[in-house]
């Protein structure tokens, strides 16, 4: 690893000031992506600004909805009793990221800001309609996560902005969720396809009040399958309709072929996993 400066600001204002004052600065959260990039010379920061010294930036707050500090570790998200109780799909998604060693370091904010289309936290939070709160040089600013990603490994964050908090809306608590990740192994994989589904449906009638479907690793950024959602919203979830929606989701995916999988296979996986995910939610016994 090349040499660099290291700064550990004690508050957000100092962090933003350090961002503006230094050459080629990078924000350091868990470092599980950044340090690998530095070791392989993919990125060459001259200065790392470690956010872990900022008080309160790693807190999980619950007041019907959730407010997750950007530096909350993925492991804390995974094991939080409140998250497991209220929005277990988030905990389940967190459990699929890397290893326990990685989850003890990786942060929910870092996972989003790295901007990988396959980021495990991105798909599930996108399906949860979450909002991001950024600290900037000119005060706080809020935006939907759906506005955040701009392409592979890039986000809208400006040089004077720091992601501070992820806000999960109250109403998500009434949805049932699922996170399906397909990779060759059962652990330690970057997903070939990631699917997150949040569904509010009447189990007895199968009527869908609202559904959110997010897809990871099948487009330049994590996306919502809006056409599929539109087909299902305010409709009865018949096998035929689910199949139709799954195909619509597959059409919305624009994956690439690479050494991990072909584009065609990824599209097939989207179709099958969306259908499988909806079925699994409908057939799950304990409501979430």
């Amino acid at each position: 690893m090349k040499r660099f400066d290291y700064i550990r600001p004690g508050n957000m204002a100092d962090a933003i000031a350090a961002l503006q004052a230094n050459d080629e600065p990078y924000l350091l959260a868990g470092g599980t992506d950044l340090l690998i990039g530095m070791k392989t010379n993919a990125v060459k920061p001259k200065c790392l600004i470690d956010l872990k010294g900022i008080p309160g930036i790693d807190c999980i707050e619950y007041d019907n909805g959730f407010k997750l500090g950007a530096l909350t570790t993925v492991r804390d998200v995974e094991v939080s009793p409140l998250i497991r109780e209220k929005i277990p799909a988030l905990s389940e998604a967190a459990a699929t990221l890397g290893s326990i060693q990685i989850r003890n370091r990786a942060t929910i904010g870092g996972n989003l800001c790295h901007g990988s289309p396959a980021a495990d936290m991105a798909a599930i939070l996108l399906a949860m309609n979450c909002e991001l709160q950024m600290a900037t040089g000119n005060g706080a600013k809020t935006m939907g996560l759906d506005q955040f990603f701009t392409g592979p490994n890039s986000t809208v964050l400006n040089r004077n902005e720091v992601l501070a908090q992820i806000i999960i809306p109250k109403e998500i608590g009434q949805f049932k969720g699922i996170y399906l990740k397909h990779g060759p192994r059962k652990a330690m994989d970057i997903g070939i396809v990631n699917i997150a589904i949040l569904l509010d449906a009447d189990v007895s009638s199968g009527f869908c009040n609202q559904i959110m479907i997010a897809l990871g690793a099948v487009a330049p950024r994590p996306i919502r399958a809006k056409k599929a959602e539109a087909l299902l919203n305010a409709n009865r979830l018949t096998p035929e309709l689910i199949q139709e929606a799954a195909e619509a989701a597959s059409d919305e995916a624009t994956p690439i072929s690479d050494f991990r999988a072909s584009a065609g296979y990824r599209k097939d996986l989207v179709k099958n996993l969306v259908a499988k995910g909806i079925d699994q939610i409908l057939n799950s016994k304990d409501p979430s």
Partner: peptide, 19 residues
């Protein structure tokens, strides 16, 4: 390279000493 830092396991290759 796993070690236990403040009770939590981490891969020490991805932790900076200054942290």
């Amino acid at each position: 390279c796993t070690v236990i830092v403040n009770g939590k396991v981490m891969t020490s290759c991805l932790v900076l000493a200054v942290e």
